[in-house]
Amino acid sequence: MDTETVTLFLALLAVMAQVAVVSAVVLVVGGRFSPSVRVVGQRVVAEIGPQALGLAAVVALVCMSGSLYFSQVAHFLPCRLCWYQRVAMYPLVVILGVSAITRFHRIRPFAAVLAGLGACVSIFHILVERYPNLETSSCDPANPCSLIWVEKFGYLTIPTMALSGFALILVLLAVARPAAQPLAQEAP
C-alpha cells in the first residue's frame, strides 16, 4: 500500500473523528434546549460510555501508528512540535489501554490533561503551518515546523489529524463511565 493511500485513509479517519467530536458538541449544546436531543445524548452515552476508555485507547493507538508510519515508512521527518505531540499521544496508548482493561476510570482527568496539552500543541502547530512567521522568518533546510508534508481536502495536515485524535480522545474521556451494575437482589 503506497503513502498516498495510507495518508488518505488516515485523513478519512481524522474526518470521522471530527464528525464524532462535532456530533458530541451538538448533542451537548442541543440537549440544553431540546429534551429529545437530550434523550438521544443519554442513549449515546449509555451505549458508548462503558466502552469509551477502550475506544480512546484505540484512537491513541491509531494516532501513534499513523505517526510512526509517516516517520518510519514514508520518511516524513518529525519536527520539534511533532515530537511534543508524540510525547502527549504515545503514553496515552498505554495509560488508556491498561485503564480500559482494568476498568480504572479514575485515570480520566490525568489522561484528559495529557490529551489537552497535546491538543494545544497541535493547535499551535497548525497556526505555524498557516502563519510561518509565528515561529521564524526563514526556513531551516533540515526540518522546519512550518513545512506541510501532506494536505488533504484543502485543510487536513498532520497536526490537524493529531488534533482530531486528541479531540476525540477528550470526548471519549468525557463520556466514559463504568458499565451500569446490576441491582443487588434484596435479601429475602
Partner: peptide, 27 residues
C-alpha cells in the same frame, strides 16, 4: 439501557474498514 458493548466495537470496526476501502479505491 443496557450497553451493547460488542455492537459499539463492531460498528467502529465497520466504519474503519469502510474508510479503508474508500481510501484504496480513491487513491
Amino acid at each position: 439501557p443496557a450497553s451493547r458493548g460488542p455492537v459499539v466495537w463492531y460498528a467502529a470496526l465497520a466504519v474503519v474498514m469502510l474508510l479503508g476501502v474508500v481510501a484504496v479505491v480513491a487513491a
